[in-house]
């Protein structure tokens, strides 16, 4: 409840933030602060310098123009309420609306969320399912990282030291059906299991499925076995069951467990929520 001492600097531009990060090895970025400050209050992390990027307005935009671009500082509440997000990728709007609570959504940002890479967080799951690209900037310039490659492990991303997430780009998903299905932890509200389905349909037949699980495993992961099962299939109950079984088998021993949801349960719920996400996407 009482963070340790730190120096504070408010950056007015991404360039400035990148420069400060390069100059200070023990610095952290402060965006919405809703992952960082709780850790600092318990002194689980004690950075020497906080670089506040929260007032850089250019990182707050959400715009749809060929692709959907979401600035790193867009709050979960704005992502959830954005007409563009709802139109382009309703699963993301839904996932954002299920994060934390009203207050957390008002100030927590999508960029801060993905940089933190909590395995039980919702956005990574839907962003991978969408085939999103994470744009980052570092001392040596900008680069684009596929969401699928961005989340490496528990609280670990492909970000290099000194890099700042600037925006998230979601490709045109028109014609796809998508949904996110989540079982929330009753206390933390994080995902015990979250599954996102993005489906490309031709009549009753699935041309392509992108299926991603989060919460149950160390980082959000494509359920490629289940995707293969559904490809070219009619999405009837038998197909969904087969996909669920494939997903359960793929998760296998990677399923995480805790006192609320042991590994065997989470693994089984991957199958349940996979089916729920697909059914919800199909409407």
């Amino acid at each position: 409840m009482y963070p340790a001492k730190f120096d504070y600097y408010r950056a007015n531009s991404v360039e400035e933030a990148v420069k400060l990060l390069a100059e200070n090895s023990d610095a952290k970025l402060l965006a919405g602060g809703h992952s960082l400050i709780p850790a600092m209050k318990l002194r689980l992390t004690q950075p020497a310098l906080l670089i506040d990027i929260g007032k850089i307005d250019s990182l707050k935009n959400i715009k749809a123009n060929g692709s959907l671009e979401i600035g790193a500082l867009a709050t979960h509440a704005r992502v959830a309420a954005s007409a563009d997000v709802k139109k382009w990728f309703p699963a993301l709007a839904n996932a954002a609306s299920l994060i934390g609570d009203q207050q957390v959504r008002n100030f927590g940002t999508i960029g801060g969320n993905i940089a933190h890479a909590d395995p039980a967080s919702d956005p990574p799951t839907v962003l991978i399912a969408a085939g999103a690209t994470i744009h980052v900037r570092g001392a040596s310039g900008t680069r684009a990282i596929a969401a699928e490659d961005f989340f490496v492990d528990l609280f670990t991303t492909a970000l290099e030291p000194g890099e700042v997430v600037t925006k998230i780009e979601i490709p045109n998903l028109s014609g796809r059906k998508s949904a996110y299905a989540k079982m929330s932890h009753p206390a933390s509200r994080y995902a015990i299991v979250g599954v996102c389905a993005v489906l490309s349909m031709e009549g009753d037949t699935c041309k392509e499925a992108r299926l991603v699980v989060g919460g149950a495993v160390a980082h959000a992961t494509r359920l490629s076995e289940a995707e293969a099962v559904l490809k070219g299939k009619k999405l009837d109950a038998a197909a969904l069951k087969a996909a669920a079984d494939a997903a359960i088998a793929q998760v296998g021993d990677d399923a995480m467990g805790d006192i609320t949801a042991p590994a065997d349960y989470r693994r089984a719920m991957v199958g349940q929520y996979l089916q729920r996400a697909i059914q919800s996407a199909l409407g």
Binding site: P186, A187, S188, I259
Partner: peptide, 16 residues
């Protein structure tokens, strides 16, 4: 204590 905070100890919320 594995349930040492309100992140882990599930106090009921309005929607439960």
């Amino acid at each position: 204590l594995l349930t040492g905070s309100l992140m882990d100890y599930a106090l009921p919320r309005a929607d439960l």
